[in-house]
Nucleic acid binder design. Sequence first.
DNA 1: GGAAAAAGTAAGATGTATCTAACTTGGAGG
DNA 2: CCTCCAAGTTAGATACATCTTACTTTTTCC
Lengths: 258, 258
Amino acid sequence: MYLTWRRARHRFGEVIRLPISSRIEDYMEEIFALEISGREATVTDLANALGVAKATVVAAVRRLSEASMVSHERYGAFRLTEKGRERALRIHRRHEHLTFLFEDILGFDKKRAQAMACVLEHEMDEEAEVRIMGFTDYLARAQKEGREWVKDLLSVMGDERKLPRPLAMIPEGEKGVVTRVTAEEPLRGRLFSLGLSPGAAILRLAAPPGDELVNLEADGNEITLKMTEAASVWICTGPDRGPYKRGGMEDVPYNHSA
Amino acid sequence: MYLTWRRARHRFGEVIRLPISSRIEDYMEEIFALEISGREATVTDLANALGVAKATVVAAVRRLSEASMVSHERYGAFRLTEKGRERALRIHRRHEHLTFLFEDILGFDKKRAQAMACVLEHEMDEEAEVRIMGFTDYLARAQKEGREWVKDLLSVMGDERKLPRPLAMIPEGEKGVVTRVTAEEPLRGRLFSLGLSPGAAILRLAAPPGDELVNLEADGNEITLKMTEAASVWICTGPDRGPYKRGGMEDVPYNHSA
DNA sequence: GGAAAAAGTAAGATGTATCTAACTTGGAGG
DNA sequence: CCTCCAAGTTAGATACATCTTACTTTTTCC
Ligand SMILES: [Mn+2]
Ligand SMILES: [Mn+2]
Ligand SMILES: [Mn+2]
Ligand SMILES: [Mn+2]
């Protein structure tokens, strides 16, 4: 059991590097959420909140305790240290405000909003948080004031829409419309000046021999691109793709709530 | 070595559940990106792209191969199967378009945009993707057309801003302003009608005995809340918090690029 | 005050993702 | 044709997050 080994090293005063993974941050976040609502954070609470076995919580909290994020005496409740509370506050705040953005403003369903918030919260620094917060507040305010553009913005989100494929995947002879060019800047400008910008109608032509090039007609002009270039041009084809299929999210690794 | 065991079971025809984790999806995404730019996906390519050892790629691809997502004969290049290519397309498309949104539209720096896109891409279903796409396109278009509201929206994102704390963390005697109420609906309405809505000025008063309640003054009226309720009211205090500190993102578990 | 229930902890195991070090294979050049 | 090197693979190990089962401590309540 590796925890035994870890604890042994710990006891002998060895300094152990203790990275706090995003999953472990979820435990901190939950302890924080319990603390600020006036409840004590117990093993059972965390196990229920995070959907794991109690033994798993014990292991997680031991890590947090060794990292001086949580203080814990045997059979007692957990308390965040000052350092741990600071960090947990950041995570919790990001979670709450991202959820607010995704669910209350942008209209994602609750489960999706939670899932998205719960991964994004670990990938933001303070600057990103400040930016998202400004964005969210601006939208919220515009919505409350009944601005037309917010209504439009939110209503187009609900529209059905075909999803594009990279130009390289379009078969010869097929027509389509450019919906996005995701290339970095020097190339992006070049593609735009060739007529490959959102809205342009294209027709893929027979490929020249060699497998490295793509021929196509863009708004009437015949052009040739390298495959690497074509990879960043996204094309919607066919008017006949029915309503979008629901689904996806297969095999999400964790089933957590925090 | 667990791979030996897994392969053994596989050979004997046992059906093994093969969940594809978000990390494994990153490998698929990278194979896809190589394929559409006309290159072959090799062990070395993937190892470089994902920042892992070659042996790690071999293990990952074995999983993909057993899940029928990738075909691979020894010492040859990888090719996505039809099923694998469908899935990889979805991931790659989400990655590209989220990056476009975060970096090109919303102005996050490249690294942050990549990190955020690379976790979010695994938490979206097709509906979420369609919604984000509509949102992104609308913003892109409004920006190209020079709409004032987009300029304002993007400029407030760059503003400095104090970050709030839950009401429960505000010390007695401190004043502040409500910036958000993240409660669910029945409670949210009640809090709003008590005067606790964004913009309200509050002053925390001495707590009543018992540790379960919070006293405060909101726009002049004295009110009492349960701690659980107070947890969802976010308060900004003090005019004296300097420019926000940069930082965060400590201990991110993976260092991937895909 | 003691028995039963609930809460917490420990041990041992599994599955995933990763590494390094050694080994094998295929192909390019002489 | 052979050699050698780059590319690919295997073996064996570590770290983390998780589980189940069994044990210990605390709490509850008659
Ligand atoms: Mn999370
Ligand atoms: Mn969370
Ligand atoms: Mn990813
Ligand atoms: Mn990605």
